[in-house]
Every structure is written in structure tokens, then in C-alpha cells.
């Protein structure tokens, strides 16, 4: 009886002592710095560049074998600009990225040192392809994609790398659209289970579309480089 009790106790303990792998990067809200460059072949729009919208709203999480990303950054940035937009004080809308977008992936691997696997991406995003001033005047497009995510632990430091390809579509104005992304996360544990993460990210998008106030079919390349900062929980 005593052996059985010990065995059950050990089993329950082992379930709780199971290696917890991963990090929960909570840019909720987070900050980002960087730039976005939009280069079009439309003479009216030309080429324009602007600083990245500062506040973001995103959760990027790896726990055990699962990768989950929820991103509302462009939507949130738009909301934070409401007072300025109501007073026509915005020179150009900096809403770039996800209105509401997500990624789901499965990471293969054993132990808590390294894991890697594929992920799928789906959501509604936006890019300022019309050089608009008001964030909520921007049009949305659907993004669908595939990616690979890898996770590595180095003592108090955790690194994550993400690479992927996405197709963009919106029947009303986009005829062709695709893009790639490269993201890295460096997270460092500071106090108890919490720390900070830095996410340098590069996005490259190509669109063939019809601008809002011009019927000319236009090609645009949107390139952005941002560095994000947020709080992180370590599992």
C-alpha cells in the first residue's frame, strides 16, 4: 500500500515537475521603433517613408510544443491615434501590419533546449498603400501564409527565430500580393519568472493593386524594419 502511495505521489509530482519550455512575449501593449518604406510606380503616390507606429498589441507565445501568435498592432495603433485623427493632426497613417491576425504552429523536439516546427498564418492586415492620413481609412486585406519557427534556450536567455511567406488578397483592390517576413526574439529573464524581450523584424511585401483615389493599376513594394520591446514570462 505504501509503495502504491509513493508511486502515485511520484507520478503526480512528475507531472508538475515536467520541463516547462518556452516564453510568452507580451507586447500588450509593447513598443516598437523602426521605419516603413512604400515604393510605388504610381506618379501620384510616388515613394514615401515613415517611422513605425509606436504602440503595438501582440502576444507571441511558445509553450511546450505549441507556438501561438495573436497580433492586433495596426488596429491598436489606429485606436491610439483617435484624438489626433479627430483634430486632423496626423501627417501620415503609420498603421502597418495586423488588424487581427494569428499564427499557430507545432514545434518538434524533446528536452527544454531546442524546438522547431512549422506554423500557419491567417488574418486581416493593412498597409498604407494610399498614403492616407487617417488610420481607419486604410483598407484591409486577408493574409494567409506558412512559416517555420525555432526556439533555443541559453541559460537565462531564450532565442526564437521565425521565417515565413504570406499571400495577400482583397477582391476590391488587390490583384496580386505576397510577402516574406523574418523575425527574431531575444528574451532575458530579469526577476522571478519575468523579463524583457526584443524582437527585431523585417517584412517585405509586394502588391499589385488599385489605389483608392486613382483607377491606375499600381505596383508597390512595402518594406519595414522594426524592433519591438515587451514584457516576457518564462515557462
Amino acid at each position: 500500500m505504501r509503495i502504491l502511495f509513493t508511486a502515485v505521489s511520484l507520478l503526480i509530482s512528475s507531472l508538475f515537475l515536467k520541463a516547462q519550455v518556452g516564453i510568452n512575449c507580451q507586447y500588450f501593449p509593447g513598443l516598437q521603433v523602426g521605419f516603413v518604406r512604400v515604393k510605388t510606380d504610381n506618379a501620384k503616390l510616388g515613394e514615401y517613408k515613415y517611422g513605425a507606429g509606436l504602440p503595438i498589441l501582440m502576444i507571441d507565445r511558445i509553450k511546450d510544443h505549441w507556438y501561438l501568435n495573436t497580433d492586433l498592432s495596426a488596429l491598436y495603433y489606429g485606436a491610439t491615434q483617435t484624438n489626433k485623427a479627430n483634430d486632423n493632426q496626423i501627417k501620415i497613417s503609420k498603421a502597418e501590419g495586423a488588424f487581427f491576425s494569428g499564427r499557430l504552429g507545432y514545434l518538434f523536439g524533446k528536452g527544454d533546449q531546442f524546438r522547431m516546427g512549422p506554423n500557419i498564418n491567417v488574418g486581416s492586415s493593412t498597409s498604407n498603400l494610399d498614403s492616407l492620413k487617417k488610420t481607419f481609412d486604410q483598407r484591409a486585406y486577408t493574409n494567409l501564409g506558412l512559416g517555420v519557427v525555432a526556439y533555443k534556450k541559453f541559460g537565462k536567455l531564450r532565442l526564437v527565430g521565425k521565417v515565413g511567406y504570406e499571400r495577400y488578397s482583397a477582391k476590391s483592390y488587390i490583384t496580386k500580393g505576397s510577402g516574406t517576413y523574418l523575425e527574431a526574439t531575444i528574451a532575458y529573464s530579469i526577476f522571478q519568472k519575468y523579463g524583457l524581450s526584443i524582437m527585431p523584424s523585417f517584412y517585405s511585401k509586394k502588391f499589385e493593386y488599385t489605389p483608392k483615389n486613382d483607377a491606375t493599376v499600381t505596383n508597390a513594394k512595402v518594406k519595414s524594419f522594426v524592433i519591438r520591446f515587451g514584457l516576457t514570462k518564462f515557462f
Partner: peptide, 8 residues
């Protein structure tokens, strides 16, 4: 950041 009636 969105106050009705407020103008900067």
C-alpha cells in the same frame, strides 16, 4: 487616446 469632445 480617444476622448469624445476633446480636440488637442
Amino acid at each position: 487616446f480617444g476622448t469624445k469632445g476633446y480636440l488637442i
